[in-house]
């Protein structure tokens, strides 16, 4: 009972994930600022922003469904927090079971659907436009992402993240065997997080704020939290699936390696948002179905051939 509460609230549950997400946001903003010759925010800025958002007035336009609009970020937050319980952190896996990868992937696509619904229930024109864009984007990146993420599972012969990490311990990190799959997973993750350069649903100069245009105050704060936790969990997941060969190491070494891998992935994500421009939605769909899907299928074929 006590250990269950500890897992839920402190580690690897709520508190740890919130702290990680705030740190991630700060590091991301700081790196992006330095890439753009700016100074960037101080370390407490994400927390200050969150407190500010929670203390602000909560408004929605007339005709918007307040109850649904309040529930959507809460549902997304609980979905990502639950997903976080099943993702191993530096090899620490309290709730591992066969098939948890599928549960994680399912839970992590809940916020995208909630994001679309948020656009629809908050009745603004930009919100609806952004909502339909987010669904279009979902269909473009989700398929190559899922196909790519099934690569490690096929290679280790198990749908459990812990099992995948154990087989990496004997075979070496899967990024060596599936570099294309790793790149596809990073692209898919950027699309999932709606980060620059795939921030099409919330492109500021086109649809103002996307589905969240009409959101304010605490709801907006919750959405920010959801996005950042999702980003952190996505990075954790990629680290485990492609670089998680440290399961059998000394725990201290495993933690250090895990942190280094996390930082490298943050740099990759920030760098991508600094050097790429935003695609049009039709260009993204073309990229997703004409290039990313065939590439991911090729990668899977390669993995299956290797297994034989």
């Amino acid at each position: 009972m006590i250990s269950g509460l500890f897992y839920l609230l402190l580690f690897p549950g709520l508190l740890f994930q919130v702290i990680c997400s705030l740190f991630f946001e700060w590091l991301d903003r700081k790196l992006l600022a330095r890439f753009q010759r700016r100074v960037g925010p101080p370390w407490f800025q994400p927390l200050a922003d969150l407190i500010k958002l929670f203390s602000k007035e909560d408004l929605l336009p007339e005709g918007a469904n307040d109850l649904v609009a309040t529930l959507l970020p809460l549902i997304s937050l609980s979905a990502v927090l639950t997903a976080g319980l099943y993702i191993p952190i530096a090899g620490f896996t309290p709730f591992s079971f066969e098939g948890d990868l599928i549960v994680i992937l399912f839970l992590m696509s809940v916020p995208t659907l909630a994001y679309y619904l948020a656009g629809v229930v908050s009745v603004g024109v930009y919100s609806i436009l952004g909502g339909s864009r987010s669904l279009l984007q979902f269909f473009s990146y989700e398929v190559p992402l899922l196909i790519a993420l099934s690569g490690p599972a096929i290679m280790s012969g198990s749908w459990s993240v812990e099992q995948i990490m154990i087989s990496q311990g004997s075979m070496g990190p899967f990024i060596l065997f599936q570099p294309v799959g790793f790149v596809l997973a990073v692209v898919g993750l950027i699309g999932k997080l709606k980060r620059d350069p795939l921030d099409i649903p919330k492109a500021k100069s086109e649809v103002v704020g996307g589905p969240l245009t009409e959101f304010t105050g605490a709801k907006m704060g919750l959405w920010h939290l959801v996005m950042n936790i999702q980003a952190v969990l996505g990075i954790f997941l990629l680290t485990n699936l492609y670089l998680g060969w440290t399961k059998t190491f000394n725990p201290l070494v495993a933690v250090v390696v895990f942190i280094i891998e996390f930082l490298v992935l943050v740099v990759i994500l920030s760098g991508a948002s600094a050097i790429y421009a935003r695609l049009r939605i039709d260009q993204l769909a073309g990229l997703g179905w004409r290039i990313l899907v065939p590439l991911s299928l090729l990668q899977i074929g390669f993995v299956i051939l290797m297994g034989i």
Partner: peptide, 20 residues
Amino acid sequence: MSILKAVINAFRKTPDTVKY
């Protein structure tokens, strides 16, 4: 990718902001 070069150069230099 000359933008990559520009970004790396920017990262290595100190920021241009005037901290007035």
